[in-house]
Write a protein that binds this DNA or RNA. Structure first.
Length: 591
RNA sequence: GGCCCCGUAGCUCAGCUGGAUAGAGCAGCGGACUUCUAAUCCGCAGGUCGUAGGUUCGAGUCCUACCGGGGUCACCA
């Protein structure tokens, strides 16, 4: 299915078996970078269908000029032209081998797409390996704001992508429901509860959550408990209110995620790590202690200017420096409770014990300081058997009509995720968030993302998809329903226009784009590819204006029309498949 | 001060992990609509890839140092 990989796979044995290597002893042969030999689409289409770097890579080991080696390989490819479906071979530049394939190769792509449907592009890269992708993990203290949005969409799309290429993916959300912040949440809710009972509470004190969203919870508590909570001491009401507050906030978050189309398989509670007398954080610390990775000691003061309240004191520390961290990290606070880092390690330990040797955490860019300690921790708790990859999502800057949208954190009036999705829609939000490398900041302009022009990639791609549908509708009008049936059986070999081949070549790239996107955890590659494919399709469409003989629908030639509709259908399928990986709806019409 | 990201056309960004003459979109200029929806397309113009070294057949991509922008920096959440 992947023409480029297939070609390299067929070419490699030919090179290995040729007399090019026969002068070398086994060691020298083993030293050749054969695994780096690839066949790729050339940057410039006039160079042919694919290009290989084989001669350049072998030059050093063979102690011969790249061009000489290229000559030899070109000869080899020509000799096996039929088996390789090669039409012509040429040598260019420093030693590139440019290859033009027989037209049938590209034509067969159309059939390939039609036969496999949404599975065209699916691979078994992951080979069923278990992988855990953790994303969002927003604290359950309020509705999700726009900052969470990017990580949510990124993580969700990444998980879909990894699943598509054969990993056994678990999508996970870690609920920070154990720390002081949920106590603050409960206190804030209690205030709203008193308010709901008619008390004048005045301004929300510094340090509590001021958001209006807690009013509903206050009212709910008033319904449920009447004035009973007023009679209690804080130690009594706090657990009750906390429980209600956390579950209310989670409900809020789930509804926000639902709006975005973001799903999780597992919601993992931090509190569960220490619940029911079973302290898994302590177990983790005990486990690391056995391997001499825990000690009590002091840390060197941070470089630069010291915090005002810095004091040198003994702490229980994890020896993260052994695995590449800059300093060792504290696991216990001065009051004896666990640090968040300690819980996080225990949580990742749990993931490991559940069979995940590959983990991905999607975090906001403000957590970048976390990278070394957390990867060190995973390496340690798994005895170097598991790996953690952390992907950071950079900030999203909001604009409206080119003007920055002001947000005030103090008043609690942040732009929420729900605000964004309600205004521009799920598809637009998701696509724009993914139409950028995750570690680059993103400008999100409410006005621009709704524009219906090619300036707006969401629209541009969806419009291409809608066009394929309108083409079908038109074809049925000109002929009848049968014109679009069983298109996978159509003879594609009558398609011979250069512009049609350009489209087929673009389709052929899809599997390797998917694979690269999955390999590098970069779903944005799919988004950019879709934009390219849409562009190729719009371009081809418009050729039909200047050259009517290229139009998809020829009312006097059913056979040709069907062949062209097969190509259109292939484009439609790949657009829908790619959009599906991003979690964006492929709309059939845009009006 | 340490660490982590970013720096590519006037603007917003890609660049397939080291390959050929660095690519798109927008903005600018010039063209194509009695249409298979012109919500689109075609062409022109636009660059010392932050700077300086290094690695090698070859660097936007890797290494080092600096410059500029952002983030982060004991027990925080």
């Amino acid at each position: 299915m992947n023409i480029y990989a297939d070609f390299a796979e067929k070419m490699l044995p030919l090179i290995k078996g040729s007399d090019l290597l026969s002068d070398l002893d086994a060691d020298a042969q083993a030293a050749l970078p054969l695994d780096r030999i690839v066949a790729e689409p050339p940057r410039d289409a006039t160079h042919g269908d694919l290009a290989t770097n084989a001669a350049l890579l072998l030059a050093k080991g063979l102690r011969r000029k790249p061009r000489d080696i290229a000559e030899a390989i070109a000869k080899l490819l020509t000799e096996h032209a039929d088996a390789l479906q090669v039409q012509s071979v040429s040598i260019a530049g420093p030693g590139f081998i440019n290859i033009t394939l027989q037209p049938a190769v590209w034509q067969s792509i159309v059939q390939d797409v039609l036969t496999n449907g949404m599975d065209f592009g699916r691979t078994d890269l992951g080979q069923g390996e278990k992988i855990n992708v953790e994303y969002v993990s927003a604290n359950p203290t309020g509705p999700m704001h726009v900052g969470h949005c990017r990580g949510a969409v990124f993580g969700d799309a990444l998980a879909t992508l990894l699943s598509y290429v054969g990993y056994d993916v678990t999508r996970e959300y870690y609920i920070n429901d154990a720390g002081a912040q949920v106590d603050v949440l409960a206190q804030s809710a209690y205030l709203r509860y008193r308010e709901a009972l008619g008390e004048a509470i005045g301004a929300i004190p510094q340090g509590l959550y001021p958001g209006e969203y807690l009013k509903a919870l206050g009212a709910q508590l008033a319904d449920q408990y009447g004035s009973a909570l007023l009679e209690m001491d804080e130690v009594e009401w706090l657990p009750l209110v906390k429980e209600a507050a956390i579950s209310a906030m989670l409900e809020l978050i789930r509804s926000d995620l639902d709006k975005l189309g973001v799903v999780h398989d597992v919601f993992f509670s931090e509190r569960s790590l220490t619940a029911d007398g079973d302290d898994r954080v302590a177990e983790m610390i005990a486990d690391l202690s056995k391997r001499d990775l825990i000690y009590v000691g002091t840390l060197p003061p941070p470089k630069g200017k010291l915090p005002d309240d810095w004091e040198d004191r003994e702490q229980t520390l994890f020896r993260s420096t052994r695995y590449g961290d800059d300093v060792d990290r504290a696991l216990l606070k001065s009051d004896g409770s666990y640090t968040y880092f300690a819980s996080d390690i225990a949580y990742h330990f749990d993931k490991y014990k559940r069979g995940f040797n590959r983990m991905v955490d999607v975090l906001g860019a403000d957590h970048q300081g976390y990278l070394k300690r957390m990867t060190a921790a995973v390496t340690a708790i798994s005895s170097e058997n598991a790996s953690l990859d952390i992907r950071f999502c950079q900030l999203v800057n909001l604009f409206r009509d080119g003007q920055p949208v002001k947000m005030s954190k103090r008043s609690g009036n942040l732009v929420t995720l729900a605000d964004v999705v309600d205004e521009v829609g799920r598809d637009v939000t998701r696509f724009i968030m993914l139409y950028r490398k995750n570690d680059a900041t993103l400008d999100f302009d409410f006005t621009k993302v709704l524009e219906q022009s090619k300036d707006n990639p969401v629209f541009y791609v969806q419009y291409a998809h809608a066009r394929t549908h309108s083409t079908f509708a038109q074809a049925i009008e000109v002929f009848d329903e049968k014109i679009v049936s069983d298109l996978e059986k159509v003879d594609i070999s009558i398609l011979d226009d250069a512009s049609e081949f350009a489209l087929m070549r673009k389709l052929a790239e899809y599997p390797r784009i998917v694979e690269a996107a999955a390999n590098f955890y970069e779903p944005h590659r799919i988004a950019f590819y879709l934009n390219d494919l849409a562009s190729a399709f719009h371009g081809h469409w418009n050729k039909g204006k200047d050259l009517p003989q290229l139009r998809f629908i020829k009312d006097d030639n059913e056979k040709l029309t069907r062949a062209r509709l097969a190509l259109v259908l292939a484009v439609q399928i790949v657009l829908r498949s790619g959009l599906g990986l991003l979690g964006v709806d492929a709309r059939e019409e845009l009006r």
